[in-house]
Amino acid sequence: MHASSLEAYTTLRLGGKAGAVTVASEPDEAVATVRSAARRGEPVLVLAGGSNVVIGDDGFPGTVLLLRTRGVKIVKRDSRGVLVRVAAGEPWDEFVATTLGDGLAGLEALSGIPGSAGATPIQNVGAYGTEVARTIEAVHVYDREADEVKELSLPECGFAYRSSVFKNNDRWLVLEVDFRLDDATVSAPVRYAELARQLGVEIGERVGADRVRETVLKLRASKGMVLDPEDLDTRSVGSFFTNPVLSAQQWAEVQDRLVDAGEPPSWPAPNGTVKVPAAWLIEKAGFAKGYAGRDGVAISSKHTLALTHRGGGSTEALLDLAREIRDGVRDRFGVVLHPEPVLVNCAL
């Protein structure tokens, strides 16, 4: 398929045209497409769910590979639990539902996240007190530099907060992901205060995994974070900014600048750092839910961290709104927010 608008392949419904679009329903097809493009010296953009990518108005000049691989299989059961292998193109929430239906726990708090299973290690996707790095055992990839398929172990994936060796790195094409799950219908310990409150339990308690999934789906829907074609608030990439992790000195400087803003929520992070909610900083810098930018873009009416495309807009308009928010938070608190999604052929 040649020159095609990329709007249809992203949850934002934004992005210019591609030089060419091709579909891979098998891992071998995906590898062959990438190899072929490399021989031609042509760039490749891999898209699956398109839920964590912002594509510029000029589109992408090379080949866009739509990853449509499918499949979930149990590789082995042992004393450490159950090893489950999922194809990179498998829709993430369908995979979570499948594992729970098979009596396997560990992914329930990550229910409702848009996108594909193969995208989750790239971003080290996380929500409600957990992240995929807690359950990933290995990631099967095509290494473009070595021109071979490899299995990367958990340490080799370099997982960090919303990051990994795969993020912003064209070397790796994720083909399959191995998750180590519990052979149980009881959830992993509940680690997130809001979720614990909704469940009526204490932090660290376990409840039925299905109940956690149901509660998380309701929480996400209330924030416009579950894809719904009828709800324009879900035309987003989820959280646009990561929660800043501040040094003790930066945290002290933020507190000095609070004045009448009140005490922000915060959590201790590694090495004496402090994690502060970006949503709180954005709101206190004067950007409320529903705050409108130009040309059909706005902050979600349900969640301050989501920047949405209401229709008829452009990527540049969305980025202008992101810049306005970033600069406003910097001017108010001296904290620089960083984007969470992958930016393709555009920049903040």
Rank of each mutant, 00 (worst) to 15 (best):
D295K: 14
N169M: 13
G334Y: 00
V276S: 01
V174H: 05
L227R: 14
F159W: 10
V174Y: 00
P264T: 04
G16M: 05
P277W: 00
I136Y: 01
E156Y: 01
A87L: 11
M225D: 08
D147P: 05
S79G: 10
P270V: 03
T242C: 07
E316C: 07
L199S: 09
V254H: 02
A193F: 14
G118W: 11
V53H: 00
E194C: 01
L307E: 03
I299T: 11
L258R: 06
G49A: 03
V276W: 07
G293Q: 12
S239C: 10
F241V: 04
D256H: 12
N52H: 06
E214T: 15
V75G: 10
G334V: 01
E26S: 15
R213F: 10
E263N: 02
L337Q: 01
T11L: 13
Y291R: 13
V31T: 02
E26N: 12
V139W: 14
L318I: 04
A188D: 12
S4G: 13
S25T: 14
E205A: 15
I282G: 03
I299V: 15
A127K: 09
G129E: 02
V132H: 07
G158S: 05
V274R: 04
A8K: 13
E263R: 12
E29C: 07
C157I: 09
E94G: 13
L83V: 08
V186C: 11
G56W: 05
V46C: 02
W92Q: 01
F241S: 07
E151N: 09
L181F: 09
L45W: 13
V201G: 11
S222I: 08
G158R: 03
A278E: 07
D260C: 10
V259Y: 09
G62A: 05
V344F: 06
